[in-house]
């Protein structure tokens, strides 16, 4: 494999790869808990393929991106800037934030939208060590009866969804897989 540089790891066929990636991301957001494959980007470490592909698909000079903790490396910054042109900002101004749950920190740092514009909220891309259909029980829009998903922090995510229609929305990424959790989902602990 050739050495990773800021110039490599983008989409080789942008319009087509982005179209496929968006469909996977959209389906995940429309069906909370469903785990889908998401590939196309080859970001520098420590970013997962799925997280890098999301950035390539959704970010550009019009979106602020917050790189949390370990995700904020010079290589990641260069790669992000070269391929998307997205400005790197702090958590409070971020349209998209990327990192592990630990690194992303308390959700109070992020925009949750306003009563008149609830869409003006951050989307968090949470890098996970594992992603399985086990753990919290989800229900609500997009879910036939209930779904299960491994969530990093049930109380915090439950608090987020209780603010509906305000709140953050989440993608959980692991390797080349993605699942989503919009604020509209009701979350119950296992059992």
């Amino acid at each position: 494999m050739t050495k990773q540089s800021q110039f490599s790891g983008g989409f080789s066929d942008a319009s087509i790869q982005a179209a496929h990636a968006f469909r996977a991301a959209m389906t995940a957001m429309a069906r909370p808990g469903e785990i889908r494959s998401l590939t196309g980007g080859l970001p520098p470490k420590p970013l997962s393929i799925a997280a890098g592909t999301l950035l390539l698909t959704l970010c550009d000079p019009e979106t602020n991106v917050y790189l949390a903790g370990a995700a904020d490396t010079p290589a990641v910054r260069q790669w992000l800037t070269f391929h998307t042109g997205a400005p790197v900002t702090g958590a409070a101004e971020a349209d998209f934030a990327l990192g592990t749950w630990q690194d992303l920190g308390p959700l109070t740092a992020y925009r949750i939208g306003t009563a008149e514009y609830p869409d003006r909220s951050a989307t968090l891309i949470v890098e996970c060590a594992e992603l399985t259909n086990a753990g919290a029980t989800l229900s609500g829009p997009g879910i036939r009866d209930t779904a299960c998903l491994s969530l990093p922090d049930i109380p915090a995510l439950h608090a987020n969804s209780s603010m509906f229609p305000l709140g953050c929305d989440f993608f959980f990424t692991c390797g080349s897989e993605v699942a989503a959790l919009p604020r509209s989902t009701t979350i119950r602990s296992e059992g």
């Binding site: 319009s15 698909t57 989307t123 929305d169 509209s184």
Partner: peptide, 24 residues
């Protein structure tokens, strides 16, 4: 471009679709 729109426009629309799905 594929499907007429330029990529930046598609991204802007795609972001709106995701927020739309999140707030039905």
């Amino acid at each position: 471009n594929f499907a007429y729109l330029d990529e930046q426009t598609k991204r802007m629309i795609r972001r709106a679709i995701l927020k739309g799905l999140a707030v039905p």
